[in-house]
């Protein structure tokens, strides 16, 4: 399959937050006034100015302490549910870049009900900027089209963040998975066949982040979206121009 992918090896992440800051830097996103809410994680969640967030989860099992780091970002799904929802309201508000596959929101998303879009995302990614536009990771498509790496990937010192042609990233992910499976039987790639941002974890995804992986029983799919999904192909056929 064409286009680009991220491969994020969480076993190499040490939560330095270079990626979180580099993303802010490149996008010139503001910082908000935060408080320490009892964790190193800050801001607490993705927001209109935070497209990349390193999540910290600590737990103790069998006398061993685990501190899992999850550098969360948009998955750039191959078939993005957010796009379906948004296009239910406004055409052309979401672009799927044909070279990279990046899922990109335009100004037209200002007209779309934000909560509905966010709830349709299995990974809880879309947020609203102060301008009213929906925002999220852009895959640094402006950098990538100029032959550069996304800012987060460029900054990562350990090789947790990887980026390149999808087939290469999938191959890298599978190779790394095979290496880790020996020591960590629970190691897995998260939804590798349906997303372009492929995470590798060594434990239950839920231990990293509630929305690390797409689960079937997610709440909040609107009736509208459910209907759309049902009618899907037929709706495509009904688009003007397609049938002559």
């Amino acid at each position: 399959m064409a286009g680009k992918s991220f491969f994020i090896d969480t076993t190499r992440c040490m939560a330095c937050r270079g990626c979180q800051i580099a993303c802010k830097n490149w996008n010139q996103n503001k910082a908000s006034e935060t408080q320490n809410w009892g964790s190193y994680q800050n801001p607490k969640d993705l927001d209109g100015n935070t497209f990349k967030l390193v999540r910290f989860s600590e737990m103790e099992e069998d006398g061993k302490i685990h501190w899992y780091f999850f550098p969360d970002q948009c998955r750039h799904c191959l078939e993005p549910p957010c796009k379906d929802t948004i296009e239910g309201y406004v055409d052309g508000a979401v672009i799927q870049d044909k070279d990279t596959g990046a899922v990109l929101y335009t100004e037209k998303t200002k007209k779309v009900p934000y909560e509905e879009v966010r709830d349709s995302c299995p990974y809880n990614i879309p947020r609203k900027a102060a301008s009213g536009q929906l925002v999220k990771c852009t895959m640094c498509v402006d950098r990538v089209s100029a032959g550069l790496l996304p800012a987060c990937v460029k900054t990562c010192p350990t090789g947790a963040m990887n980026f390149g042609d999808r087939d290469k990233m999938l191959a890298l992910a599978k190779k790394r998975l095979a290496e880790l499976k020996k020591k960590y039987p629970k190691a897995q790639l998260l939804d590798p066949d349906s997303v372009r941002t492929i995470y590798l974890v060594i434990d239950d995804p839920q231990k990293y982040h509630k929305f690390a992986i797409a689960s079937n029983d997610r709440k909040g799919i609107s009736r509208k979206l459910a209907m759309k999904k049902m009618l899907g192909p037929a709706r495509q056929l009904l688009k003007p121009g397609l049938l002559g």
Binding site: I21, A31, T34, N36, Y40, N42
Partner: peptide
């Protein structure tokens, strides 16, 4: 530096 302070805003 606002981005750094956002990450670690207070003495803990």
């Amino acid at each position: 530096q606002p981005w750094l302070l956002e990450c670690q805003p207070q003495l803990f």
